[in-house]
Design a protein around this nucleic acid. Structure first.
Lengths: 341, 341
DNA sequence: TTAATTTCCGTGTGCGCACACGGAGAGAAA
DNA sequence: TTTCTCTCCGTGTGCGCACACGGAAATTAA
């Protein structure tokens, strides 16, 4: 159509600058008009480029089963890109042990991949890797939480503030006038708390908007679950000192620890809202102890993380620097239809 | 390795019986020993087998913009399978005109595709096509609604009963004692109402479960929007005759028609729950007139419908005869994160 | 003016497979 | 013996793309 050979068109497509501006624009115009899209099949057949992506994730322990979910999505992506000369190396670290993160990430840097997906749960150590990566021009994608002012290819995760905001809406919707809400932070002593703090901040901010039309009291509690006897100690003390509580908001997936307490002590009628669709929480959602779970499609996050990197390496368009996951509202009535598909 | 040409090996692999038993077994043995697996990429590049799928959908009119959403998913699937020798012919009919469905489906049968995706909104006429399809062994997938006792390859859509059940939970959760709920059915005079009836049935059934602990009154209203002056006529009459209403449940995506009325007549404080994330509804969700929308990822439905057929044609595993979509709960606080991705 | 570059472009090959065509050899029919 | 048919097999081409090579024309250097 442009009166040139396939080779020239190829040069335009791959931006190898050996084409005169005139023919280049002519070809580009035709490409646009005809809506040309490369045949990925033939592309990967002909190409001998093999892209290696690294996934650096917390291992899913009994202590924190959540991370099994993003891993599922990563594995789905692996199955999909392996036909297209793509591969994924998996690295795991201990979420309660920054040293393990450093060790594993050092390993990773020794054999640099073409791209890397990881949650910057340890900001300091993460910044160190990022320096290496940026020096070597290796693209990286954040999952779960983000680091501001960093040139990540993309961040894939939830809008933490807004999820807290939504939690407040759900609780207030079922509230009467002059009742008490308790916010519980199940913090680890060290590590990134930024994410959970954002959730709490979003929660509190709801009560400063016009959507809120009732009078409430909001208490808050910080409980370190690594201490013996927790969360019973703190909760017992709180309930003794204070009056009736109508609703509890837990800022993390460990809400099942609170649910267990409430059920054991006959306080299951208290509204309970927490995070994430892990097995422990499902049980308490189904028996009514937990009323709402906020979920964020972790499988899709893992999947999209790998796919975003792979598409970028293959010079395909990627969605943008921020890919917010949905803030799914899960109840006993719709839990059977998640995750999907 | 077997001392024969690639062509002969090819004949063995494809079981074209033009090979002597001796060399055949020799080749088979080598194939097994070396663990040969065909390169799927090269396979589909070289293959000239083209699978043609038909998508028979209601056209998205001003009257019913919902069907633009599944269409988006279909188009995404088209982009994906077009690299693998797959194509999709799109056929559209008028949701308010069974004759148009018959006309278009007759057209379709004249040039039979290798598989077909359609919503059986007109049961009688659908059965007729199905007879043709089954006679010709053409697989078909139901989307949106289903027909019982039919050998569809798969049904992709929501559990309608359960979605109504969930709507009841959401409404009751915000309800006080001794209040009134109004259920509105915006039925077309003819056509399939089965789906909407299931939603209503699920809604009602909630009040027979132990989860319901308040006393309510439930009224219901059938309004035919094709009649002049509706829904004002019926609603005016209802509100004059009856006392305070606390919540309204609309069983379809036309909930925005009710929202418009409520807002215009100063009744926006009434809890309003309806279906589907169409533009008209988004407006009223954002301004607070609608409190909850129940959504069903229609884009994903369209996408999965095509992909299910395509995978089946390519002898890949498909999920099963029923693929329930999630029952998404959408509020003003999380609407910005749907659809995803 | 001639030689040396540089710019721009056409051609050819191969990725792993599917499939058409045709040919050698063996056996059957004339 | 000659001709025909049938079995079994090799060869060639193309799918859509990436990429190397080299060549003609335009430009610069000598």
């Amino acid at each position: 159509m442009a009166g040139v050979s396939p080779g020239t068109v190829d040069r335009v497509i791959h931006q190898r600058n050996e084409v005169s501006p005139a023919t280049r624009t002519r070809i580009l115009k035709i490409l646009k008009k005809t809506g040309y899209t490369p045949n990925l099949i033939a592309k990967s057949l002909a190409s001998k480029k093999k892209y290696r992506i690294a996934a650096l994730l917390p291992s899913a322990s009994n202590d924190n089963p959540y991370w099994a979910l993003p891993l599922k999505g990563v594995e789905k992506a692996i199955a999909e890109i392996s036909d297209f000369n793509g591969s994924v190396d998996q690295y795991f670290f201990d979420l309660n042990n920054e040293a393990s993160f450093i060790r594993v990430s050092d390993d990773l840097i020794k054999d640099p991949p073409d791209g890397i997906l990881f949650p910057p749960v340890f900001p300091k150590s993460s910044l160190k890797i990022i320096q290496h990566l940026e020096a070597k021009q290796i693209p990286y994608v954040f999952i779960d939480s983000s680091l501001d002012d960093r040139n990540s290819l993309s961040y894939i995760g939830q809008d933490a503030m807004q999820s807290g905001f939504l939690a407040a809406k759900l609780i207030c919707y079922g509230l009467r006038d002059r009742e008490t809400i308790l916010v519980i932070n199940l913090a680890r002593p060290e590590g990134i708390m930024h994410h959970l703090q954002k959730r709490q901040k979003g929660f509190i901010s709801y009560f400063n908007t016009c959507r809120y039309d009732k009078k409430v009291r909001i208490d808050s509690l910080e409980i370190d679950l690594t201490q013996a006897g927790e969360p019973e100690l703190h909760l017992d003390e709180y309930f003794i000192r204070n009056g009736e509580v109508r609703a509890i908001f837990v800022t993390s997936s460990k809400v099942h620890k609170i649910a267990r307490y409430l059920k054991a002590y006959g306080k299951a009628q208290i509204l309970l809202v927490g995070y994430d669709l892990i097995e422990e929480n499902k049980v308490y959602l189904n028996d009514g102890t937990i009323d709402f779970l906020i979920s964020q499609q972790p499988e899709t996050q893992g999947y999209l993380g790998i796919m975003t990197l792979f598409r970028h390496l293959n010079r395909q368009n990627i969605p943008g620097p921020v890919q917010y996951s949905p803030i799914d509202i899960i109840t006993a009535e719709n839990i059977n239809y998640y995750p999907y598909p």
